[in-house]
Amino acid sequence: MTERDIVQRLHALCLMADRHRAPSHRHTAEDFVAQRDEIRDGLRRCYRELTGNWPGHEADAAGPERRQRPPVPTAILRHRERTKAARA
Rank of each mutant, 00 (worst) to 15 (best):
E3C: 14
E3H: 13
R4N: 13
H11V: 10
L13T: 00
C14A: 15
L15A: 03
M16D: 01
A17Y: 00
A17T: 07
R19N: 07
P23N: 05
S24L: 10
H27C: 14
H27L: 07
T28Y: 02
E30N: 07
E30K: 09
D31T: 05
F32C: 10
A34V: 08
Q35M: 13
R36N: 08
D37H: 05
D37G: 04
D37Q: 13
D37W: 07
E38L: 06
E38D: 14
R40C: 03
R40H: 11
D41W: 04
D41N: 11
L43A: 08
R45P: 03
R45N: 09
Y47N: 06
Y47S: 09
R48L: 07
E49M: 10
E49K: 12
L50S: 15
L50K: 09
T51M: 15
T51H: 15
N53R: 15
N53G: 14
N53D: 15
G56E: 15
A59S: 15
A61E: 12
A61K: 12
Q68W: 02
R69Q: 13
P71N: 04
P71C: 00
V72F: 02
V72N: 04
P73H: 05
P73Y: 01
L77C: 01
R78P: 00
R82V: 00
R82S: 02
T83W: 03
T83S: 07
R87A: 12
A88D: 02
